[in-house]
Design a protein around this nucleic acid. Structure first.
Length: 139
DNA sequence: GCCAACGTTGGC
DNA sequence: GCCAACGTTGGC
């Protein structure tokens, strides 16, 4: 299967990109939204996942990779919720802020903007590449 | 099954 | 800290 691209959100006060870098790998638990769960279930090993920090940072800060597909989320009090395993790949040279994403006409349709409360969302390859480029030094 | 009330998320 | 948007719950 061809590689897919995603974005997950986290409040850095709860779990930050720096935390993932320190841990190297983590179980992405705590998703309690049906739409987000659909996306978690669709993730495949090797898919690239943007790490977006909400609230205080409001920027895409790093790239991670799916290392294990969805399994039962053991932190949930009911069965049926899932988590995936993510590992840190690399930080963006410069964070791509929400404001920056909003400036880009070709990124106007990303769920990050259109559905601000969704915490796990898909991105097209073009959208992913575009944001990666914005995150390069001097972009 | 509808809708009001409420809680949560997240931008500003 | 405020508020809009959204999801969930519960009464009818």
């Amino acid at each position: 299967m061809t590689k897919q691209y995603w974005l997950v959100k986290s409040e850095p006060e709860a779990y930050s990109w720096a935390d993932l870098v320190t841990e190297k790998e983590t179980d992405w638990t705590g998703v309690r939204n049906y739409q987000a769960r659909l996306h978690l279930n669709a993730m495949r090993k090797g898919d690239r996942v943007f790490f977006y920090e909400s609230v205080s940072t409001k920027a895409v800060v790093g790239i991670s990779e799916v290392t294990e597909t969805a399994t039962e989320d053991k932190t949930a009090d009911k069965l049926g919720w899932v988590s995936v395993k993510l590992k840190a790949v690399k930080a963006l040279s410069q964070p791509v802020t929400l404001a920056r994403v909003k400036e880009e006409e070709s990124l106007a349709n990303v769920a990050l903007i259109r559905q601000s409360r969704l915490s796990v969302m898909p991105l097209s390859k073009d959208e992913f590449t575009h944001i990666v480029n914005l995150g390069k030094k001097g972009a």
